[in-house]
Design a protein around this nucleic acid. Sequence first.
DNA 1: CATATCCGTAAGTTGACACTTCCGTAAGTG
DNA 2: CACTTACGGAAGTGTCAACTTACGGATATG
Lengths: 111, 111
Amino acid sequence: MEAAIRAIAEPRRREILRLVWASELAAGEIARHFDVTRPAISQHLRVLKEAGLVSERRNGTRRLYRARPESIAQLRAYLESYWDENLRLLKQAAEQEEQRRARRDHRHESH
Amino acid sequence: MEAAIRAIAEPRRREILRLVWASELAAGEIARHFDVTRPAISQHLRVLKEAGLVSERRNGTRRLYRARPESIAQLRAYLESYWDENLRLLKQAAEQEEQRRARRDHRHESH
DNA sequence: CATATCCGTAAGTTGACACTTCCGTAAGTG
DNA sequence: CACTTACGGAAGTGTCAACTTACGGATATG
């Protein structure tokens, strides 16, 4: 999961992931979309693969990559839960603050 | 936005962000939650601040930090649109494939 | 004013990483 | 069997980032 977040943090890898999202592409086809050398893209693909975000399939001399929707969904769910958990903490803190304020006001009333 | 994603990619910064999410905390209080030195946390706080994810307020000798919900919401929305856009591409590709398949089948029928 | 507290900055180190060039390998092609 | 195509791996380079220690500045406190 940590690896997936780091992989996504790199803009170029987000673009690569977008390319292989809808259709399976060969490494060279992917590399042609960018202005860096093919080995550089190969390395990005390895990072994505080790993070589980893409799968690799060999066909003759070509290596075909495609996004792995399950892992991507997992990453997405992880981030969702991060936001949600924190929002929950925020609400909880706000409620406790409200309770403290209410008790304080109550004391003042009773004087 | 790019800065925000990079900031979030670091686990320690996600923890810091969680700490200052619900309540405003002083730099020292934040640092006490971790086993690295205070300057290290200061630097993380600067990264978060420059990414717009936290705000800083001075009170005497203390510097109080808190999360900035608007920027965080922006980051979240950006990631949401990334997933959604790609899913849209995936569906579109699937439909085009379906159309191609249908046309091919139709030709075979007519033979 | 002297001192302590709270904190960021500066400088240096180490490791990661995005990239390059060069090379090896495996599969098609004449 | 040469030769091309398609690719990843290895090695080197420059840069960045996360950390450390050392220091200085600003604010409360006696």
